[in-house]
Amino acid sequence: MLPLMANILGPGKVPLTLEINARRVEVSAEPRATLLEILRDHLDLTGTKNVCEMGECGACTVHLDGVARYACLTLAVEAVGRRVTTIEGLSSANGTLHPLQQAFVEKDGLQCGFCTPGQVMAAAALLAENPSPSHDEIRAAMAGNICRCGAYPKIFEAVAEAAARMKSARQD
């Protein structure tokens, strides 16, 4: 039998160091804890919503190293050593909303608002990669986020509006 070099953690609680919204945080959790549980229940970052918990709705969308992911399908232990960004980390430190957040407000990109943090995070990942998406590209990039109220037309409008504003801000 080979000597095992790997570090085996758990099944009980283990200390985890995470980088969330550019801050280092220490938590103690079992390996089975999802990133979603840690954000909401350990760190009070409740902007990331818990809905289906099965990777089907998008309400828990966060960024892992800048890429959109479902926090409900990510173990916290898998996020060690990676940059996690949640909706709380999207606005500026002084409270100024991200252009996407501002556009969702102004364009009424929501009704009940429960899916909105996930929608905004999915859109933010899109605009980081593709600053001038077409309508079809917006629809494709937002396909993993369900809106129970059916506010899709306004959501797509808000994303397009934010893209336009961010583009003109860059050109100023």
Binding site: M1, L4, A6, I8, R32
Partner: peptide, 21 residues
Amino acid sequence: MNPFEYASADSLDDAVALLRE
């Protein structure tokens, strides 16, 4: 979810040994 231990493998040899155990 049931409790489980989590092992991050550094190599394929490591991974298959961890599976075999």
